[in-house]
């Protein structure tokens, strides 16, 4: 058996399924040597990515959000993909406070980038979007959010 645990989750694009993605990544992060604060960071990052897939990718229509979580020694990798509308300009989309929805704050990517060690975005308009995020064990506390029990 290889020393890599790769779990795949397929979620209908419904808001209540965000918490399922959170639980799965939290459990896998907890099996690595992450702290509570780091697990919370991973949960926020995956919430933002899955919410984006539901809200922007599928625009509230039915579709499947695929979450792949890979735990390997010292690192957690999460890929969130949708087959939704895609992103026209990825650099613009990643800008802080930029959103195509006036009701939203445009901070989703900012959170992902701050809470994970790397965030890669691939997208094809009309075909969908894939966000791959990685976090290494022990890479960062002292990070803004590692404020202990602050929940």
């Amino acid at each position: 058996m290889v020393d890599e645990n790769r779990v795949v989750l397929e979620l209908p694009s419904r808001p209540e399924n965000v918490s399922i993605a959170r639980l799965v990544v939290a459990q896998m992060a907890a099996q690595l040597q992450f702290t509570v604060a780091e697990v919370e960071e991973v949960k926020v990052a995956v919430s933002e990515a899955v919410t984006n897939a539901i809200v922007h990718g599928y625009r509230g229509r039915a579709g499947i959000v695929r979450v792949e979580v890979c735990a390997r020694p010292g690192e957690l990798e999460i890929a969130v993909s949708d087959q939704g509308v895609g992103i026209e300009d990825i650099d613009l989309a990643r800008q802080p406070a930029w959103s195509t929805d006036p009701e939203r704050m445009g901070l989703g990517f900012v959170f992902m980038e701050n809470f994970m060690d790397s965030v890669e975005v691939e997208s094809r308009p009309g075909h969908g979007t894939r966000v791959v995020m990685r976090k290494r064990v022990g890479s960062g506390y002292g990070s803004a959010a590692a404020s202990g029990g602050a929940v």
């Binding site: 919370e40 933002e48 901070l107 929940v151």
Partner: peptide, 19 residues
């Protein structure tokens, strides 16, 4: 512990931004 830490906070709402 994972269940407790998730259960002890309100589930993320999609109606309003999560953050």
């Amino acid at each position: 512990i994972v269940a407790a830490l998730e259960g002890s906070r309100p589930p993320a709402s999609i109606q309003e931004p999560i953050h």
